[in-house]
């Protein structure tokens, strides 16, 4: 293995920060959910890279659980998007401000 594991961790950090920027700046609520998937993928890369470095497989088991949680999150999140669209006819996060005082 010629690539240092630090490079994988750096790539993971870069994808994580890009996902965070996406969650912050996007206005469409579906794009916010897609950026969340990007952040989950960054965590997966970090798990597998640390796993190979530390000679263990527990991180890959956790990646399996993260995949499950991502599927559940996508199902519930997109169900919420459908419900919000049906109620408000809009998917702009700036306009969903009913909880604001």
């Amino acid at each position: 293995m010629s690539i240092p594991y630090e490079y994988y961790i750096a790539l993971s950090g870069l994808l994580m920060v890009l996902g965070l920027i996406g969650v912050t700046v996007r206005k469409n609520i579906i794009a916010v959910l897609i950026s969340t998937e990007l952040m989950l993928n960054a965590v997966n890369i970090a798990f597998v890279a640390y796993d190979m470095k530390l000679n263990d497989v527990a991180g890959q088991v956790f990646v399996f659980f993260i995949l499950t949680i991502a599927a559940a999150e996508a199902a519930v999140g997109l169900g919420l998007v459908m419900a919000i669209y049906r109620l408000r006819k809009d998917v702009d996060v700036e306009k969903l401000s009913e909880l604001k005082l």
Binding site: R26, L67, A71, Y85, D92
Partner: peptide, 27 residues
């Protein structure tokens, strides 16, 4: 199998249901 097929199909289905977002993409 799970991400690139199953989850993305969720997103594509919902995007095809919700009409196109006309506003600004980023703030």
């Amino acid at each position: 199998l799970i991400y690139a097929v199953a989850i993305v199909v969720f997103y594509v289905l919902v995007i095809s249901t919700v009409p196109q977002y006309k506003g600004q993409a980023v703030d």
